[in-house]
Nucleic acid binder design. Sequence first.
DNA 1: GCTTAAGTTGAACGATCGTACAAAATAAGG
DNA 2: CCTTATTTTGTACGATCGTTCAACTTAAGC
Lengths: 223, 223
Amino acid sequence: MIFMTAKVTEIKRQRAPSKRSLQTRARILDAAEALFADRGFEGASIRDIAAKAGVQVGLVHHHGGGKEELFHKTVARRADELAQIRLDALNALKEAGQPTLRGVLDCFIRPYITLAETGGVGWMAYGRLVAHVSVDPRWRAIAAECFDPTARRFIAEIAALYPKVDAALLASGQVYSVSAVLAHLNSAWRVDALSEGGQLAGTDELIDFCAAGIEALVRSANP
Amino acid sequence: MIFMTAKVTEIKRQRAPSKRSLQTRARILDAAEALFADRGFEGASIRDIAAKAGVQVGLVHHHGGGKEELFHKTVARRADELAQIRLDALNALKEAGQPTLRGVLDCFIRPYITLAETGGVGWMAYGRLVAHVSVDPRWRAIAAECFDPTARRFIAEIAALYPKVDAALLASGQVYSVSAVLAHLNSAWRVDALSEGGQLAGTDELIDFCAAGIEALVRSANP
DNA sequence: GCTTAAGTTGAACGATCGTACAAAATAAGG
DNA sequence: CCTTATTTTGTACGATCGTTCAACTTAAGC
């Protein structure tokens, strides 16, 4: 049940992985991502993943290294890429001058939405996968490892805009905002149902929502 | 895989259920609630639920009627109670005079938070359970049945405050707000980690966040 | 208090789960 | 090209899964 973070024996590779094995590894991660996102950790079986990837069950273990480690790898893969894009956007913003809350939030939110909408089915599924990780207490270690560093960076950036506001209040605003972003990605169907066929708000409106919400938190601390 | 909503044969009860069986039924639902909330649908086994409830596995089926129906009953039980409390609060607010956005949101959000904080472990677990339902596409029917009627009622109430704003935009605000409430209930540990031991925002601040967010959405529609 | 519907027990069913492993196929490094 | 590390196949194991059912116990209704 406990997730294994450390490998006891680190065996050195003696050869570079073949191009085919890298492709296979990517196909397995893609299949795992889609199925974990749709059905959760135990809802997706190794056999389902193997079938979707077009490989044998044993191969999933060979590349994934057990189901929990496969889950971890699936979450971490895109988290690293997304974190880089977000930080690049933040750095570009800061070079352009003094950042605003709206601008910082834009750097955090927009890359995610854009990738989900135009980056292919993988990034779309990743939103649901992250939602699963965020919900389940068992994956706290994964969430802390994959998401906390970037979240801390952006909270620090926002804190610089409001030096006198308690960090925990800004962290709360960040957590609320992340959840709103995940809802934006995963609950378009719900908005459609609740408004009789209406369309979900756009990315700009979502960022407006989060920025105004955080400003309200700041106001509550500085009455 | 498809959730069965209709019973083909409706057998009439010839006797009232015994007091003991009602207690057993409640214990099974409590156990199912806690385990579904912690581990998700397939992560919680019928045997785990039976063991936690202190009954035999067959009895879980007798009272639950299959795993999916048990899951549905677990979600629906508190949803009905919560919906009633929320609507009562809304009616009391309207009798006191012309409602405000902040007031309407308070009726929607505060009962949930209060129950989770003071209503016992059941209501605390329920927040995680609802989060699971919201994440997984397989439970859309349950979400629509248990949550949509109340959500529609509150969206209509907010729409009355902003007659010229698109309903889908307000529905988006509602969905964002619900996700923030769930994050508030389930992610206190995350705020703690991100702010080095700081404390999650209070209920008033959460409602401020949502109200300011929705007002920002309204502004974006009425430039 | 008797009758019997309803509740409960305990065991068993077939299916599927994650994992392990030997053998075969592939391709990197010299 | 040869060697052999690595990748891939195919199968099998033990455990656990959801579900079923006959037998037994409890208690509601008359």
